[in-house]
């Protein structure tokens, strides 16, 4: 069940579900609308954590019968994150859906749980992106947590992303490391890290993914020496499955690149985010998302848990 686009994810999730979902700060109309639809589709049922009074109010407004679901009343953001993550850690729920809370309290909860289990502590955000020009989904990482990961952190980030992709049906995902190597002033940390990462993977420290040749999109699409002629000559299937970015400065812009020209050349770009590395499947819709988008997040949560 290799997922090539988000529609496939929604279809397969119907067969894989139902799952139990920790919903962090659920008192939001779009989230509850999405959970209602997700429940009807058989994706699963939520444990709703947040302001119970507001949750029940909104649920009634949208005719969502939540009488069978667990509702945990809390207004404290950190407590909400801790409770939701804890439920997933003990197996009472299958995955965490971030509702209307900020990243940092959730990161703290995830790191605490993973340290208790003596798992690796480098968590990262993987953005799963669908670009109309690409024949498959790609994962960008780390687009949300570590400002400037060093070599060791990058190794863990790659492993995290590969684990996520294996859950999405990729047997040995290809990883491309993006750097600013451009034949000029190339003494960059990104390049030296990339060389070390390639060496480490060549020694088969982690056979679950493969680092591809090349250090930039130009390298991936044009080869080491080639020049762009026309777009008809670009073989888009050569894009690696996972792209590692050097720092958050780049990752943050890449992940939102469609905002620069959404009415021109990036219409139809879609994205869904995950926090990976704590051993707790976690999907992170963005605040501006509508219920239609959040349903896909839930479907993806079903698939990776």
């Amino acid at each position: 069940m290799l997922i090539r686009n988000f529609q496939e994810a929604e279809e397969i999730a119907r067969k894989v579900g139902p799952k139990k979902i920790s919903v962090l700060r659920a008192e939001n109309r779009e989230f509850l609308l999405a959970l209602k639809e997700a429940h009807q589709r058989g994706y699963g049922e939520p444990v709703l954590i947040g302001d119970e009074r507001k949750i029940r109010e909104i649920a009634e407004e949208i005719s969502f019968d939540i009488s069978k679901f667990v509702v945990i009343d809390s207004k404290d953001t950190q407590e909400i994150a801790d409770r939701g993550v804890q439920l997933a850690a003990t197996g009472e729920t299958d995955f965490v859906l971030r509702g209307y809370i900020d990243g940092p309290p959730l990161y703290r909860s995830l790191i605490r749980v993973s340290s208790k289990r003596e798992l690796k502590k480098q968590i990262c955000v993987v953005a799963l992106m669908q670009f109309p020009v690409l024949p498959k989904l790609i994962g960008l990482t780390d687009t949300g947590i570590t400002v400037a990961p060093d070599f060791g952190a990058k190794m863990e980030i790659i492993k995290n992303a590969a684990t996520l992709f294996s859950r999405l049906g990729y047997e040995s995902p290809q990883v491309g490391i993006i750097t600013a190597r451009r034949g000029l002033n190339d003494e960059l940390d990104s390049v030296s890290d990339a060389i070390k990462i390639k060496e480490a993977f060549a020694k088969r420290q982690f056979p679950e993914c493969r680092i591809v040749d090349g250090l930039s999109l130009s390298d991936f699409f044009l080869g080491a020496e080639g020049f762009l002629e026309g777009f008809d000559e670009v073989d888009y299937s050569r894009i690696p499955d996972i792209l590692l970015v050097h720092n958050l400065e780049f990752g943050n812009i890449f992940v939102k690149i469609d905002s620069v020209a959404e009415r021109d050349f990036f219409s139809g770009v879609r994205r869904h985010g995950f926090i990976v590395g704590a051993g707790i499947p976690t999907v992170i819709p963005s605040r501006a998302d509508t219920h239609e988008t959040i349903i896909t997040d839930i479907a993806l949560g079903v698939l990776i848990s």
Binding site: V133, I178, L217, V234, V245, N247, I253, F254
Partner: peptide, 17 residues
């Protein structure tokens, strides 16, 4: 920085065609 700027130019070219 260059990691953002060079690579973003590439993203616009290749993924934005």
């Amino acid at each position: 920085d260059i990691e953002a700027s060079y690579s973003i130019a590439e993203v616009l070219v290749f993924l934005g065609r």
